[in-house]
Write a protein that binds this DNA or RNA. Structure first.
Lengths: 218, 218
DNA sequence: GTCTATAAGGAGATAGAC
DNA sequence: GTCTATCTCCTTATAGAC
């Protein structure tokens, strides 16, 4: 039995097309952002007409909302797939790594934009809000856990950690490094992870022990 | 003699109005971003008509470009004002602190958006590009200096440090903390600076010395 | 220089034929 | 369900009166 189950061929085709539409939407959102993405862009990219597009999604808001819900599902799935053996910080790091790779491949892991306008629009989408709350609470739990174990700085309010974490998933430094520094993807990922957890300040401190040796901590 | 020098009253009024227009533009850019800002917004905010606005600036692109040039001038001036006695990292930190405060007060320190569209538009503005290059080279010099002295992690490529630094000046975490956590401005500034330089990872390492004492480094 | 009125074009959304 | 053609509104930008 196929993944489509008992659906008719017509329904299968419908679902396939809908996925194609959502893929196109995600790609355009990643490159141009919400405000500059037009319904014509989406329709043209997959070779259908605008009215056909509106048969699938009743508005631009609906289309983008659905695409964003799918992105959140991907992120949640990714989080669940992580081996239980990983510690809280390792899980956060792995998810951030995944998000960075998605972006470096021209995709979009979470938010299409940090604009207040788009945020308000998405907040009117109940399905989206529900998924955001769920993912957010999972991540918050990981942050608290990592702070308790000392892997993440326990002196920082957990909000500061969590919001900074989100910010790194859409950090513009990624695009700058890709575009202007022509750096390899692997290097960008590695450096972004390092900056997220250790900052740009000095990586190690030298302290004087009683016998005046230099001891490096890391 | 006033700051206007020998300008006629008419020219003085002209300059005052122009500054009012640029102030309004900056505020709207900070809140709605470039794409959603309309020329009507700007004209209405200062109580003039749209054609009058176009007498001062020949296009939206021109208006925003001029506003951005003024912002860059502010940033450069701020950088020059810093006491010579400060080290390179302290200067970077002070400028970031200033940028964060500007944003927390509803203003805009540098970029109005990270959108490729706006970036390309600004790159067509020669005056803007010139100022960006100048400020950028000053900041790059500070980064290299701080890396040489070990205040900033010398193992990171300077590009990574510099772009991450820019990213922190427009970090969305600031808005999240202000909006959702209702955190005090002072606290937001302090935490954002800490996260920038030290990351969200553990702030200190405990190492074992020969006699098994715990020594804290910071 | 400032306004009222308006062109010109883009983009979301739909009517109606097939 | 898909298309061509069209509607409507919004936004940039300007013409022309005062």
């Amino acid at each position: 039995m196929s993944i489509f189950g008992k659906l008719s061929f017509k329904d299968q085709a419908f679902i396939l097309r809908e996925n194609a539409i959502l893929d196109a939407t995600t790609g355009i959102l990643a490159s141009k952002g919400f405000d500059l993405m037009t319904m014509d862009d989406v329709a043209n990219m997959i070779g259908i007409s605008k009215p056909s597009l509106y048969k699938h999604f009743k508005s631009k808001e609906d289309l983008v909302g659905t695409a964003m819900v799918r992105l959140l599902d991907n992120a949640s799935a990714k989080l669940e797939q992580l081996p239980e053996s990983l510690g809280a910080k390792a899980k956060l790091s792995a998810l951030l790594e995944w998000a960075l790779r998605v972006r470096l491949d021209g995709g979009l892991p979470f938010l299409p934009s940090t604009s207040a306008h788009v945020r308000e629009m998405l907040m009117r989408n109940l399905k989206y809000v529900g998924k955001v709350i769920k993912l957010n609470s999972q991540l918050e739990k990981l942050v608290l856990q990592a702070q308790k174990s000392g892997e993440i700085n326990p002196d920082l309010p957990s909000d500061v950690v969590l919001y900074s974490y989100y910010a790194r998933t859409c950090d513009p430094a990624v695009e700058y490094l890709q575009r202007f520094s022509k750096m390899e993807k692997e290097d960008i990922v590695r450096y972004m992870l390092e900056v997220c957890f250790d900052g740009v300040g000095k990586p190690q401190q030298q302290i004087m022990t009683a016998n005046n040796d230099h001891v490096r901590t890391r």
